[in-house]
């Protein structure tokens, strides 16, 4: 019971933290933000590893295998594509601002 209460407390705090973190990201970066957070929920891979390691009949192992496969796809694809996208956001070269007379 104690354990569950601690987990609940962490859940609530992480929720507020998530709200705070994201509220300050500008529209400009919303797509990379989404694909990066998308990669982070690939943390589900941890769960997949834990289930696949437990004993069980073949079908449970297969379900675990599928979960790990999905999770790894989520993690690698997510971080990779975010990196590709952000490599395009290069800092601007020397800014030239001229006006017609």
């Amino acid at each position: 019971m104690q354990e569950t209460l601690i987990q609940l407390a962490i859940f609530i705090m992480a929720g507020f933290l998530g709200f705070e973190l994201i509220s300050r990201v500008p529209n400009l970066l919303h797509t990379p933000l989404m694909s990066a957070t998308n990669a982070i929920h690939g943390i589900i891979l941890v769960g997949g590893m834990i289930t696949i390691a437990a004993d069980g009949p073949a079908w449970v192992k297969f379900v675990g295998f599928l979960a790990v496969f999905f999770g790894a796809l989520n993690v690698v694809g997510g971080f990779w594509v975010t990196n590709r996208m952000l490599s395009m956001f290069r800092p601007p070269k020397a800014r030239v601002k001229k006006r017609k007379g």
Binding site: L17, G18, F19, L21, I22, L33, I40, H41, V46
Partner: peptide, 12 residues
């Protein structure tokens, strides 16, 4: 870690 990371993404 599943709770923390999952919740942050859920909230965001």
């Amino acid at each position: 870690i599943l709770i923390i990371a999952g919740t942050i993404v859920g909230a965001s």
